[in-house]
Each structure stands twice: as structure tokens, then as C-alpha cells.
Design a protein around this nucleic acid. Structure first.
Lengths: 342, 342
DNA sequence: GTAGACAATGTAAGCGCTTACACGGACCTG
DNA sequence: CAGGTCCGTGTAAGCGCTTACATTGTCTAC
């Protein structure tokens, strides 16, 4: 005890082994497969571990075991409550399985997303959670080459063989659009996120068109505005629509945030919702219920999706097998913001 | 798991070295300090790197360099928009500096938080972002021993020497409480998060008491309800308060979410806000503006805090120096939900 | 022309862990 | 009781990288 230099000697496996008077292999086994070590030894080792305050060095472990027990997720932004919620559940489930979460955001930018994917792979993510299918083939190719399994969430399309968990954006929105049409609306507008790189938005818009065609309406007559995710942008888009197509009686938004903006705009313009014009959303965030009038929207089980995404991804990493994708149900929440055509 | 055929052997440093006909040291230098290698060689190496699609193995790098370029954050939950927003900014800034973010959540549970801190340290986080000061001494001790720098956010208290970035919860809330008192309110109640392990909430409650004392009111007369973060809990708490202390004329909530619940409860009970009773929040989320009536609350620059927290932490990791903590200003947003005492 | 300085690169020793294989003893079987 | 099993543990070879130190070559100063 007298010749100890007073630095911060972070204890290593070897220190524990010495203290417990066993080999490093035994210590390692105690930690990783305790049942392969006899009880007496194990207790001795575990005591040494806690006495020394030992914690395995992650880098070394990753290097030797070729597994990081780390899962990466690249999401557009956490400021979207939808993702915040899903990711929270995702992370909780991951922790339950002893994994940790490496997170990055793409800000809805395709190039940035590809970059982040590469970064997380280089950081040793064992598997990746991605939002939506849309990305360059090379990215998928890269993932395949490095054999990093990935799971797409928030989208589901039976046509893709890429593992996914999500809901059918087209049908979910089509169901809502049918309802809108059944209320007599013929002049429909849509406020969407930019659809070029966002297949969720694209699907939802397609859903509206689908329902319109079914009802014998001209799907091309749909007034479409694209704008980034943001309440203010929703407001502005609504004003645009009123200017471009004042005859519009229903404005369907691809998410609740844009819809809230639309609602606010309507109030400013002294339009009554739903008497003068109907508005719908998508996601069913708390604000949908809070809004005045309450927003008719599509309810999506974000938390459940996050939780199940985690187990699927863990499974994927373990077995490397492409398991079936899962489609989650959505349901429509009918509230005051949707009414019959004036 | 061991019978998986390694389809595409991931290229290593040695492969690159061979392809470029140099030593591994040179390749490493090309990647880490390019100016220490002559241009011609460097180009040859870089070509080999891209030809082979080489990306450094993270574990090995971490092991050899004793740096992971990874920052950990432990937050209560991402479902709280306040944290989601701050963390988003935090992450963006981190990426700008080539760091990645390891994330964990504590669910407002002290024990779980301590566990997560240990996990992230074991995972090799170079530095840690923590929310609030409150945690066991041993945790700080552990961090010190492992010499992992940490930064506290969302709180600021000049009395602590722990580096922090945040605002003064006591004074921010006291300022709002003074306003409430100036409106004539004497019977004040507070809906708080559980204060035992949450110093932000504790500070805010203390702020109300401070303002009460200053005004010659009995600070102990403050009706205090504690409940977890959630709209429904806010509703319930409001009902409790009405039952316990019907003479209350102002309900101050420690965050907007609880306040929204209170507002909703008030509406259900057919109380007019602010004519019959006033309600205030804290945070200034979007919902504060959306609420009916709009919520008087304390505005906090969450994004800026996240962004600056990132730079501070990076600095801390680099220099290991305790730099000055920073206090961010807050300001009060006066809206309809606060009115004069009935 | 030679010593010394310096720049560019190579050599090789780890970093802390996992794990294939080796080893010895306890226990069975015939 | 010899031979075979099995079980618990030890030995030691890497995992892919960084970096201190060694080596070689080039240039300058006298």
C-alpha cells in the first residue's frame, strides 16, 4: 500500500484476475457466461470486481468480441414528437436487453443521412434503425457489404423485402380521405412535407389520391402544397391554399403539426372549423386533442412501434435472418375539426 | 452465431497499407494527421482507402488511442419535449465536431440514472451530459475517479463547482410568482413534479416560496401537490387542489405539461381561466401558445442550452479544465391564463 | 566532404479483452 | 483398475489500431 502511485489506475481485467487469484480467462467467463464457472470461484471473482470497481473496457471488448452491443438510430429530428416518443420506447427496450443507443439525426436531408449511417457503422453499431425506405441504393448496398442489419420503421410496404416495422401510410391516409369524401367534400387540398425524399409523406398523399379516384374524383385535382415540418409552415401553407383555391372545403395535412398551423391560420382568417372548412391531421399527438377544435387525425402507435422495433432489431442482429416485416394497425380518431361540406 | 460465413471481409488498416505499399503507421498518420505525410504518399493511401471502402474499426481505435469521440447523455425522457429539443441541438453540435452521441434515459429514477451513467462510462463515453445536479455523491466520485468530465444542464447554481449550463430555477420561478402576487393572488397552489430527486422542480417550488415570503405571505401556506410529468396527472392534481383548498385563486405549475392538464381540468369543472382561477406553466412549449387560454409561462432557451452544452462539454473533454459555468437568461411570457385575483 | 539536423517512413510494442485449445483431476464404465 | 468423459480452469494468440522509437535519406553549415 505504500508504493502505489496516486494516478487514476482504472482497473483492468488483469487486475481483477490478480486480486481473485485466477486467470483473466476465468474473469472474462464470470462476466460473460457465469454458468461456465463454479460458484465458489465466481463469487471470489465478483467480489474482486466490486472491490476494485472494475468495469470492462468497451473498446477492448468490442475489438475482441467483434460485437459492440450498440444499436444506431438515424432519425430526421427529435424535435418531432413522433420520433422522440418512438425513440424513447426504442431505447428503453434496448436497455432492457443490455444494448445502448447511438443516435444521429439527418434533419430530413438525404445526403446527411447517408453520412450519418456511415458514421454509425464505423462506430461499430451492430444494427441500425432507419426511418422510411427512401434512400440511395448505394446506402443499402453499403450496409449489405458490411453486413450490418437494418430495420426500417414508420413505414411498411409489403413490396419491399427490407425488414420493416410500420404502418401502411397509403391505406391509413386513404381511409381518412374516404371519410372526408363521405362528408361530401370534393374540393380537397393537402398540406404535405416535401415528398421527394420522404416516403411517409409521399404515401399519405398517394392515399388521398387513391380515395379520390375510388370516389370518381379527379386525383390530379388535389391541391398539393409541400413545406417543412413546422407549425408556422402549416399556417403559411393554409394561406397559400386559400389564395390558390378558395373553393377548397377540406384541408388534409400529412401530420398534426402542419394541421395545427392550418387551424391557427383558419382562426386568423376568421374561418370557422369545421363549419366553413374542415382540417385533418396525422399522428395523433397530444396537440391534436388540445387544439381548438380538436383535430380529426390518424392515430399511430408510436411507442409500440419503437418498442417492437428494438426487439426486432436485436433479433436481426442475433440471427442475421430476415424475419417478416410487421405492419401495425392505425385507426382514425374522429374529432370536431372534420365536418360535412358547407 | 459463429457459423455465419464472413461473406465480405471488412478491410483493415493492414489491407490498405498493403494496397498502398506503405506501412500501417503511415496509413494511420494519413488518417489522423495528414500533414505529417508527404503529399504523394498521402494521395496513394487515400486512393487505397476509397478503393477498398475502408473505414477504421472503432473498437480498435478506441482501445489504442484511449479516446472514443463519443459523448454520453442521460436524460429523464425524450418524451418531454424540453429534453427532446435540447438534445436535438446538442447532437447537431456534436456532429459538427465529429463526435457521436450515446444516449440513455433515467425515467426520472435516481438508481437507474446511476446505472446508466456507469454503462455509458463503460461504453467509453469521453464526457457526459447530465440533467440537474441532484445525484448521490458516489456517482460524482465515480466520475472523478474515472476522470470522465461531466456537465450539468438545465440547472445553474453558483454554489456548485460542478460545471453547468442552465438557468436559475429559483429566480426564474420567483419572478413569475412575484407577478402572480402582484395580481393580487394570496391563495396560491403549486403542481410540481416529485421534488425529492428533481432539483429543477425543487428550485421552482422554492422560487414560489421565496416570492411569497418577500411579499409577507406565509411560504408554508403554499399548497403543494407532487405528481409525475403527464397531462393527466396535471388534471388530477388540479382536482385535488380544488378539493383540498377551494379558496385557491392561482395554480402555478412547474412545467407546461402539468399546466395544460390543470387548464383542462378547470374547463371540465367549468371554471373560467383566468376569471375564476389563474394558471401558470414553465418551459414555454408550443402547447403553451396553443392552449385555451394561452398559458403564461417562463420561456427557456432549450435549443441554445443544448447547443452550448455541446461545445462546453467538448471543451471540457479536451482541456480537462473546469471552465466557468454559464447561466442562461429566462423570461416570462405573459398570456391570458394569468389574470387578477377574482 | 563530413557532421548534424530534420523530415518521411518503417518497426513493433502494446491497448484490454475474448476464446480456441491445452491440461489435469474427478467421475464413470466394463 | 485402465481407459474414456467431462468439467473447470489456465495459456496464449490474436482483434485492428496508435505511437514511441528506430531507420533511412536529404539538406545545410562549416
Amino acid at each position: 500500500m505504500d508504493d502505489v502511485p496516486h494516478d487514476q489506475p482504472v482497473p483492468t481485467l488483469a487486475d481483477v484476475a490478480r486480486a481473485a487469484n485466477v486467470s483473466t480467462a476465468t474473469v472474462s467467463r464470470c462476466l460473460n457466461s457465469p454458468d461456465r464457472v463454479v460458484r465458489q470461484t465466481r463469487e471470489r471473482v465478483l467480489k474482486a470486481v466490486s472491490d476494485l470497481g472494475y468495469a470492462p473496457n468497451f473498446g477492448a471488448r468490442a475489438l475482441a468480441a467483434r460485437q459492440t452491443h450498440t444499436i444506431g438510430a438515424i432519425i430526421p429530428t427529435m424535435e418531432n414528437a413522433v420520433f422522440a416518443r418512438g425513440i424513447q420506447a426504442f431505447q428503453e427496450e434496448l436497455v432492457r436487453h443490455g444494448k445502448t443507443l447511438l443516435i444521429a439525426s439527418s434533419a430530413y436531408d438525404e445526403t446527411l443521412e447517408a453520412e450519418q449511417i456511415r458514421t454509425l457503422v464505423a462506430r461499430g453499431a451492430d444494427g441500425l434503425l432507419l426511418i422510411g425506405y427512401h434512400r440511395e441504393t448505394e446506402v443499402y448496398e453499403f450496409l449489405r457489404k458490411r453486413s450490418v442489419p437494418s430495420l426500417v420503421a414508420w413505414s411498411f410496404d409489403a413490396a419491399h423485402e427490407q425488414p420493416a416495422i410500420g404502418f401502411d401510410n397509403v391505406n391509413a391516409m386513404a381511409a381518412l380521405a374516404r371519410l372526408v369524401i363521405r362528408q361530401g367534400h370534393r374540393k380537397i387540398a393537402c398540406i404535405s412535407a416535401p415528398i421527394a425524399t420522404n416516403d411517409r409523406a409521399r404515401g399519405r398523399v398517394a392515399g388521398i389520391r387513391l380515395a379520390m379516384s375510388e370516389a370518381g374524383l379527379d386525383a390530379d385535382a388535389l391541391i398539393l402544397t409541400q413545406t417543412p415540418y413546422d407549425i408556422e409552415n402549416g399556417e403559411k401553407a393554409f394561406r397559400d391554399i386559400r389564395a390558390r383555391a378558395p373553393e377548397t372545403t377540406a384541408v388534409m395535412c400529412v401530420n398534426d403539426v402542419l394541421a395545427i398551423g392550418a387551424l391557427r391560420s383558419a382562426r386568423e382568417m376568421e374561418l370557422r372549423v369545421p363549419e366553413d372548412i374542415s382540417v385533418t391531421g396525422f399522428d395523433d399527438l397530444e396537440i391534436a386533442l388540445l387544439a381548438e377544435p380538436a383535430l380529426t387525425t390518424v392515430h399511430v402507435p408510436h411507442r409500440e412501434m419503437g418498442r417492437r422495433a428494438a426487439s426486432m432489431l436485436i433479433q436481426l442482429v442475433k440471427s442475421r435472418e430476415v424475419r417478416e416485416s410487421v405492419e401495425l394497425p392505425t385507426d382514425i380518431r374522429i374529432r370536431r375539426s372534420l365536418g360535412p361540406v358547407p
